[in-house]
Amino acid sequence: MNKDQVKGVGEQVKGKINEAVGKATDNPGKELKGDLQQGAGKVQQSYGDAKEDAKDARDEAKRNNP
């Protein structure tokens, strides 16, 4: 797991909290902020996943072609 994956998950959690607070307080702005944070977190996590996949592929290639 790399830092982008961790930050992405953290941002998604913050987004869920903001969304829930927005719903509970009938604050559409806070709810929207939560939705946007979740989206940004998913993008960052996906970026981290892609970096991990590339690293794994590179390591596999090194093992197979010493």
Rank of each mutant, 00 (worst) to 15 (best):
M1L: 05
M1T: 03
D4F: 13
D4T: 12
Q5S: 08
Q5I: 06
K7I: 12
G8H: 00
V9H: 02
V9I: 13
G10V: 08
E11R: 00
E11N: 05
Q12V: 09
Q12L: 05
Q12C: 07
Q12N: 04
V13A: 03
K14C: 06
G15M: 13
I17T: 09
I17A: 02
A20D: 02
A20F: 02
V21L: 05
G22A: 06
G22D: 05
G22W: 01
K23F: 00
K23I: 05
A24F: 07
A24I: 00
T25W: 00
D26P: 00
P28H: 07
K30Q: 13
K30R: 09
E31C: 04
E31G: 03
K33P: 00
K33G: 04
L36K: 06
Q37F: 02
Q37L: 03
Q38Y: 01
G41S: 07
K42M: 11
V43N: 02
V43P: 00
Q44W: 04
Q44E: 09
Q45M: 15
Q45K: 14
Q45H: 14
Q45E: 14
S46L: 13
S46V: 08
Y47T: 14
G48Q: 08
D49I: 13
D49S: 14
A50C: 02
K51P: 01
K51W: 08
K51M: 11
E52V: 13
D53S: 15
D53I: 15
A54T: 11
A54H: 05
K55L: 12
K55D: 12
K55G: 12
D56S: 15
A57H: 10
R58D: 11
R58E: 07
R58F: 09
E60N: 15
A61T: 04
A61R: 11
A61C: 08
K62E: 10
R63Y: 13
N64Y: 14
